[in-house]
Design a protein around this nucleic acid. Structure first.
Lengths: 141, 141
DNA sequence: ATAAATGTGATCTCTTTAGTCAAGTATCTA
DNA sequence: TAGATACTTGACTAAAGAGATCACATTTAT
């Protein structure tokens, strides 16, 4: 479970959209890049992926932007990481599959599973709530 | 905690040395590459790192090879992964450090910690024992 | 001597990641 | 209807790291 900048930004964007979900108006890319310093054209790419997943909806034209189109209680950081991140190749090697190698693979898998379990419990809504309770400065709007 | 081929091979080598530790004679690189299909010159590099860590001792000349120079009960897969692998940069990004970003970083850290905990409990001796009990075919010599 | 091993440093290629750019399309508002 | 705002699309580049290789040097058992 490697967290690239791409995955991190995707999560930032999803959280930002989740926070502003109650508001009726969509959130412009510009607003996210200003607030979080994410490189604009890069964020565009990422939002495209999120839209392809059906997690986000885009509204074109003036006053346009993005809106969350899923229930934030159902999406976890794990979902985002697995959908946006690289496909967990898991160590491409030329070596033989010996018993030792197999045993090690099991360990790598156990370790990966452990971190998946952590991220799989962090829902967007959970994080939003935590942000709003824990620190008032997170509560814009 | 990303497991590269380099880390995987290092663990294979350490396990192989741990298994043959009772034997007096050192283990040649050739023997490891033959048995596990690890690319030879690559393994040389890796063993160099392991030697620099003081975990392995090299004997030059004919009949030479490598020998474990630490207690296999004290070295875990986590130790090897952290020593050999890349330094867990943790997402180099140009973005601002906003509350949302900070909250996410915490999650990434929690996830990484979870997998570290798994690997930190897998000692070389534990794995060797498991290999020898679980599957007779692992018990060469 | 010679064969069997490791020691060292440089190098090479491929993939991924991060980030950019330009030209186009849709929509609101005045 | 003009213009500003904002998303759409696809190609593109630069840098870094991973995986792997090579040539040549050195050491040691027999």
């Amino acid at each position: 479970m490697v967290i690239s900048a791409r995955v991190h930004y995707a999560c930032v964007a999803m959280l930002e959209l989740a926070i502003q979900n109650e508001e009726g108006s969509p959130v412009a890319i510009r607003e996210i890049t200003d607030r979080h310093g994410v490189p604009g054209p890069f964020l565009v790419q990422i939002l495209r992926s999120l839209r392809a997943l059906g997690w986000v909806q885009s509204i074109r034209g003036s006053q346009g932007g993005y809106r969350l189109s899923v229930d934030p209680t159902t999406i976890t950081l794990l979902d985002i990481a697995e959908a946006i991140g690289s496909q967990e190749t898991g160590c491409r090697t030329e070596a033989k599959r010996t018993p030792i190698a197999a045993m090690l693979q099991e360990q790598w898998e156990d370790a990966a599973e452990a971190s998946r379990r952590v991220l799989g419990q962090a829902t967007l809504s959970g994080l939003v709530e935590r942000a709003q309770h824990g620190d008032a400065s997170m509560f814009y709007i």
